[in-house]
Design a protein around this nucleic acid. Structure first.
Length: 972
DNA sequence: CGCTCCTAACC
DNA sequence: AGGTTAGGAGCGA
């Protein structure tokens, strides 16, 4: 080896496990031999060789080897008998594959290196050291952190799965230290999977920071007594020897005696016939074809090789579920809605779900037959499977249907061979039968999905609506089992409205979960690459379960008097929200990046100040470390502790300290605010932008107890507004050229609703007369005139008004106003004296909730509080406050929902092109043609202000304030 | 990698 | 003090 040469070292053992875990466990050869890991391994290796063959000289490997662990006992066990002691034995079906994988490496004509008493890592370390000494470059194909210590100027780690290369800078970024200090860092942190003990309580962040400060592990251990944090100091002293032992365990041996000298690793073209013979024997059809083509070998001329292992253990065959229960119908006349609902419920719990009865639709003719069935039934449970979880970018992979319980099918549309990605599974021909071409399928589906006579039933149907919308299909009419469940059972303690939960609750059946189907994290694979038969079971089951749930739940709506809530507040909002999500809001990337830079600068400055004041560098973002500095090292008076017994360091605590003249806490508060703004907004938002520069949030209609919407991925309902720096972020939300953003928000809507519901004359009068409501409250309570009122008096009244909405407690008010609890109690008593209606409302609401188990908004939406009678006074009081708040918050939520539902027709009627983009609880944001701004504002205000009527006549006016500007900050 | 805890952004 | 979602730290499998 010489300068300019490039050695590739593949960490074979790690490769095996990655290949094994990345593939479904049941990949087998025709004789039952498990070969999933071999298959994955060969594909990864071939990919690497292919890349190398096509890469330019100088980067491509000149030397190449695959390194394996030889056995589990190494020289490290002599140092520490517990080393890797808790490693589990490899999975049974993997064991017979080990020798096959070595055969594979030989078939590729690559050196297969292993040595008794050493780990693969030691051999890698030794070859690396020698290659660098000879002037060569090294690429280690692995992502094991134990190998990071080898990284250097000429040595990189290559993570093939993620296609990421790690040099010294990347190591530093990942672990906080350069590779030279990795050994010391690992010695401190330890490694649970290898049983390397390390020092308790020290994680990677702390370790990096300590090494940064003290230089080396040895220096740190010697000067451990200087550490300020009590627990950390004690641990470093007590476990110093353990750290030294750990260091020996994690240090790789660079002087392993080598049986194959470095120069013998010189690469050469694999022998086509030999390799093809092996791959054929393994029945890797696709890979055989590829390799044969690349190496110009005629596969049909080559015979299968004989393998070193034959007929290894066969896996147990899965017993298919035999029972096939008949679908239950409404055979008896149901005299009342309650009777029907009850019988449906009973029937559903007894049904058995047979996945083997589901069909896979492979041709247009069968699909048409299914659509005929839907037409006949008048209903179609419908579910889409997409390539990504977010509806606005996921591609359609397949759709499933159900027309009656047990009668369900899956239509694959864009499935690919399981080995379309790097890791090979079974071959194309085995898994992919025919698929109806997407265009043809849509032509058949569209008339049904848009047929007003056929009800499309979905679970979270907004998702499917969005997906189909992007394929030019406007699904209608729709029903949504999730929303029916939500209208029926919204609660702060009962389970949610996800399909799996509903199925278990109402059908007593646990459906295949998405995780089971596709795996999670590193092992996750796209649903398009999962075998179609499995997806059929999963997807058709979803449609089947949705249909069964619909039968149970829909009948309850009438029986329980909730049809109005569902029909007027839930169902019609679905397409409205789908369109809002699809539109997205335009964001100016430049503004965000400028802000981000500014924040970064300020942040760095603050960090320096903080380190200076603390006398050491630490992570201000770690409440644990911060607590130790403030209350341990600096000895400041610590106040609260959190649930877990740690010092609390929330804003309140820090601001109290700051008020006493301590500088550090106020710097921390600033740092936190800045870090939050940067991390959550200026840095994160650009990742959510599409090609057109727009952000599409996802609104959830069923995740709050009260009827409010929520927004996620990203959450656009918590964009900063309080501070000036925060508001700057809003300036990045803009209208495109020629348009304006219009923001319209209800003024004091919850207080107005309270005034109406509790029937408080003074409050109602004040709202009718347009008087400052908080000043009026203050004047009533403290007997001071509104004119020339001390702002702090008004502030107190304002806090009380909000407190009332939240189901006030002396504790909460005292906290908010930073006054003694007795004083807060006094305020509350006086408030009740002045506004006795409020106390009556609270008492009545509590009594109602206890009696019925739920409370209602003015529009009949229910929020359930099953724990309101709890023995535990804290739990009970919490439920009482929530029950007091829910009708107020919920009525406001209902009103804005009604406004949103009416908005689009109202705008259309006025021939306005304004498009509604966002909802933020009491605010709606629109994108409006400049020329139409004034007219739009008029329509928007009218719709919003009149939204409660005619069903509910609120006895105070609802007032909406609206403004237009080029960005959200100025419009708000 | 997934979970809990803590903190903080919004109405 | 009512209703939310997100991100970082730390821990354990």
């Amino acid at each position: 080896m010489q300068k300019g040469d490039h050695l590739f070292l593949v960490d074979g053992s790690a490769y095996i496990f990655r290949a094994y875990h990345a593939l479904p466990p049941l990949t087998r050869k025709s004789d039952g031999l498990p070969v999933g890991a071999v298959s994955g391994f060969c594909n990864m290796l071939w990919k690497l060789i292919e890349d190398a063959r096509s890469t330019e000289v100088g980067v491509a490997p000149t030397h190449f080897a695959v390194i394996f662990d030889y056995s589990s006992t190494t020289f490290r066990n002599a140092l520490y008998d517990q080393y890797k002691a808790n490693r589990e034995a490899p999975p049974k079906d993997l064991v017979p594959q080990f020798s096959l994988i070595r055969d594979a490496v030989r078939a590729f004509d690559l050196p297969c290196i292993e040595k008794e008493g050493y780990e693969a890592d030691d051999l890698i370390a030794t070859y690396t050291t020698q290659a660098v000494a000879a002037g060569g470059d090294v690429t280690i194909v692995s992502s094991d952190k134990d190998l990071m210590q080898l990284v250097g100027e000429r040595v990189i780690l290559y993570d093939q799965m993620k296609d990421k290369r790690l040099g010294p800078e990347e190591v530093k970024e990942k672990f906080g230290v350069y590779p030279e200090k990795m050994i010391d860092l690992q010695a401190l942190v330890g490694d649970t999977s290898d049983n390397v003990p390390g020092v308790p309580g020290i994680g990677p962040k702390t370790a990096a920071q300590l090494l940064d400060e003290y230089g080396t592990l040895e220096a740190l251990l010697e000067r451990a007594s200087e550490i300020k944090q009590t627990k950390r100091r004690e641990n470093l002293i007590e476990f110093a020897d353990q750290a030294r032992l750990s260091k020996k365990l994690v240090t790789l041996d660079c002087e392993t005696p080598l049986d194959t000298p470095l120069d013998d690793l010189f690469i050469h073209e694999p022998d086509g016939e030999k390799l093809v013979a092996f791959l054929k024997a393994m029945e890797f059809t696709t890979l055989t074809r590829r390799v044969a083509a690349a190496l110009e070998t005629d596969a049909s001329e080559v015979e299968r090789a004989s393998l070193s292992v034959e007929g290894a253990p066969r896996g147990p065959d899965l017993d298919p579920v035999a029972a096939n229960a008949p679908a239950s119908g409404d055979t008896l006349f149901a005299a009342t809605p309650q009777g029907l609902a009850e019988r449906r419920r009973e029937a559903a719990t007894g049904e058995v779900i047979d996945r083997s009865a589901y069909e896979t639709i492979r041709d247009a003719k069968t699909l048409r037959a299914w659509m005929d069935e839907a037409r006949e039934a008048g209903i179609l449970a419908f579910d889409t499977e997409t390539s990504e979880l977010s509806a606005y970018k996921g591609e359609l992979v397949g759709v499933s249907f159900a027309t009656r319980p047990g009668r369900a099918a899956y239509l694959p549309l864009a499935h690919v061979a399981a080995d379309a990605d790097l890791l090979s599974g079974p071959d194309e021909a085995e898994t992919l039968g025919g698929q109806v071409p997407l265009g043809e399928a849509l032509d058949i589906l569209k008339p049904i999905l848009e047929d007003p006579a056929i009800l499309k039933i979905g679970q979270n149907v907004k998702y499917d609506l969005l997906v189909m919308l992007r394929h030019g299909v406007e699904m209608a009419p729709i029903d949504d089992t999730m929303l029916i469940s939500y209208a029926l059972d919204a609660s702060n303690s009962l389970a949610g409205h996800g399909m799996d939960e509903l199925s278990e609750r109402f059908l007593g059946h646990k459906p295949i979960s998405y995780k089971e189907l596709c795996g999670t994290g590193r092992n996750a694979k796209p649903i398009a690459a999962v075998e179609i038969d499995k997806v059929t079971e999963y997807a058709a089951e979803d449609a089947d379960v949705t249909l069964r749930l619909w039968r149970v739940l829909k009948s309850r709506l009438t029986a329980e008097g909730l049809a109005h809530v569902y029909e007027r507040l839930e169902r019609p909002l679905v397409p409205v929200l789908a369109r809002m999500e699809e539109r997205g809001i335009m964001v100016d990337r430049q503004i965000l990046s400028r802000l981000s830079g500014r924040f970064a600068q300020k942040q760095a400055g603050l960090e320096a100040e903080i380190a200076d004041m603390a006398g050491e560098t630490f992570n201000p973002g770690s409440p644990k470390q911060l607590g130790e500095i403030l209350f341990g090292k600096l000895g400041l008076p610590g106040g609260k502790k959190t649930k877990t017994g740690q010092w609390s360091t929330d804003v309140k605590v820090l601001e109290d300290l700051a008020a006493e003249g301590h500088e550090l806490p106020s710097r921390i508060v600033e740092w936190r605010q800045l870090t939050k703004l940067k991390g959550t907004y200026t840095d994160a938002l650009p990742n959510h932008m599409d090609e057109a520069g727009r952000i599409h949030t996802s609104f959830s209609m069923a995740s709050t107890t009260t009827g409010r919407l929520s927004s996620s991925e990203p959450n656009l309902q918590n964009i900063p507004v309080r501070t000036e720096e925060g508001r700057a972020i809003r300036t990045a939300f803009v209208a495109p050229k020629g348009k304006k953003l219009v923001s319209a928000d209800y003024s004091q809507i919850e207080l107005r609703i309270l005034a109406h519901i509790a029937d408080i004359p003074q409050l109602k009068d004040a709202f009718r007369d347009g008087i400052d409501i908080h000043a009026m409250t203050a004047s009533e309570m403290f007997g001071v005139p509104v004119e020339g009122m001390d702002p702090s008096v008004r502030r107190r009244a304002k806090a009380i008004n909000f407190g009332i909405i939240y189901g006030i407690s002396a504790f909460g008010l005292a906290n908010q106003l930073a006054i003694p609890r007795e004083e807060a109690g006094l305020y509350i008593r006086r408030y009740f004296e002045r506004f006795p209606g409020i106390r009556d409302y609270m008492d009545e609401t509590k009594a109602y909730a206890k009696k019925h188990g739920y409370v209602e908004t003015l529009f009949g939406r229910r929020a359930h509080y099953p724990d309101i009678g709890a023995k535990n006074p804290q739990v009970r009081a919490f439920n009482e406050r929530a029950a007091i708040n829910a009708p107020i918050q919920g009525t406001a939520a209902d009103i804005i929902r009604r406004a949103m539902i009416r908005m689009e027709p109202a705008l259309a009627k006025a021939k306005l092109s304004a498009r509604m983009l966002l909802q933020v609880h009491d605010e709606l944001v629109f994108e409006v043609e400049e020329a139409e701004v004034d007219e739009t504002i008029t329509v928007v205000k009218n719709v919003m202000e009149a939204a409660a009527g005619p069903r509910v006549e609120i006895s105070v006016p609802l007032v909406v304030e609206a403004a237009a500007a080029t960005n959200w900050e100025e419009a708000h």
